[in-house]
Amino acid sequence: MLIVEWIGIGVLALLLAFGVLVLRRALFVRAGGTIRLSVRTSSAVPERGWSNGLGRFVGDDLRWYRIFSFALRPKRTLTRTGLVIVSRRSPAGQEAYSLPEDWVILRCSWPGRETVEIAMAATTVTGFLSWLESAPPGEVSTRLGRESTR
């Protein structure tokens, strides 16, 4: 009888985990302002370290959630205050295997903070730049660096 109880507990745990993932996805879809977004979490190895996720615009923040995570809190929050887009490029080398072909990689930095690379669909970049530029005057200093050719 002990084995049947453990199997029941295991099935219940799997159903609960599945329910949390479904609930999390439903909250994102219903809330709107959600985009597919990859963030380079580690720059230790060139062209690697990309993690898939969803970005959600909330006021002055772009909150990034990993796709394969049970966490209800964002893994990383990008604030548009002081955000500078240093460069824009297409995926190259090993990145071409982990990111879709039509995606664009933006290298972003803030004064006194780390530089981060984000990747999104080329059609999404327009919306991202609109969000970035829609801040009240004087709060955002955006600058687009040299753009690499495709």
Rank of each mutant, 00 (worst) to 15 (best):
A121K: 00
L83Y: 04
W50K: 11
V116G: 00
A135R: 08
E47S: 13
R25N: 14
S51Y: 03
V86A: 06
R24L: 10
R88C: 05
R150Q: 08
D102P: 01
T149Q: 11
P46F: 02
A122E: 14
L27W: 14
R73A: 12
S148W: 02
L21C: 07
I85C: 13
P136H: 07
E47Y: 10
R146N: 05
L23W: 15
N52P: 00
R107D: 03
G53F: 02
F128E: 01
A119H: 01
I9E: 00
R56S: 09
G19E: 03
P100S: 11
W50Y: 05
A122M: 12
G10T: 13
V39I: 15
A119S: 08
R73W: 10
L16R: 10
R24P: 01
G55C: 09
S109G: 06
E114C: 07
G49Q: 10
G8K: 06
L2N: 11
E47W: 07
R63K: 15
Y97L: 15
E114G: 09
V4S: 05
I9S: 01
R36W: 08
L106G: 01
T77E: 11
V116H: 06
S109I: 05
T126K: 11
L37F: 04
M1I: 09
P91E: 03
P136W: 07
I35G: 04
R80T: 10
L54I: 13
G19R: 04
I3S: 07
